[in-house]
């Protein structure tokens, strides 16, 4: 932009290729999405997009503060920290990852009262299991909702259950959560 304007105004003075242009590119294209792997979570400032590929029974918990422009996305695999074997990674469990993520968001400048949450995932991929005790997807999303309630973070929208895996993208700029199931896209 800057370059073409200068040329059009007849300055003849083409700006040297400074960082001016370069620093616009990432935020304008939003191409660089951070992919949140299983049992990981990331918190980022606004233009950065977050993404979870292939959410099956795992649940993708997005917590964000639009005013402060920070957001976090977690990919939790199991419901409860207390029931789990591995105590080293809090990001593995739907309840503990919320506590850790909220702390980190506040460190990044979010205000607790402005935090909102959206969750997706928790599908039951395999059809044969009838009892709820084995339905890890349902347990994951239930525990996530329960913990959000306990932390007094309003759950704005959810897309949980079903039998299909999801790929989700979270945009911290406006808090939109795009969900792709198969070839179909939806936003919550």
């Amino acid at each position: 932009m800057l370059m073409t304007d200068d040329v059009r105004n007849g300055n003849g003075l083409v700006r040297p290729q400074s960082n001016d242009l370069l620093q616009f590119t990432p935020s304008m294209t939003c191409k660089n999405e951070i992919i949140v792997g299983v049992a990981e979570f990331y918190t980022v400032p606004a233009p950065q997009m977050l993404m979870c590929i292939g959410l099956g029974s795992c649940v993708g918990i997005a917590i964000y503060d639009v005013r402060a422009g920070v957001a976090g996305l977690a990919h939790a695999m199991l419901p409860r920290f207390d029931d789990g074997k591995d105590k080293q990674n809090a990001a593995k469990y739907a309840d503990s990852v919320i506590y850790v993520m909220v702390d980190e968001l506040i460190e990044r400048g979010a205000t607790k009262a402005n935090l909102r949450a959206k969750i997706a995932g928790g599908a039951q991929m395999f059809q044969f299991i009838s009892s709820d005790t084995l339905n890890i997807g349902l347990r994951n999303s239930d525990v996530a909702k329960e913990t959000l309630k306990k932390e007094r973070i309003p759950l704005v929208a959810e897309d949980v259950g079903g039998t299909k895996g999801r790929t989700v993208r979270f945009n911290p700029t406006d808090g939109s959560y795009s969900i792709q199931i198969g070839g179909e896209y939806s936003w919550i």
Partner: peptide, 9 residues
């Protein structure tokens, strides 16, 4: 479904 989603189970 997606391989990753299936293997999560």
């Amino acid at each position: 479904g997606m391989l990753g989603a299936i293997l999560q189970y």
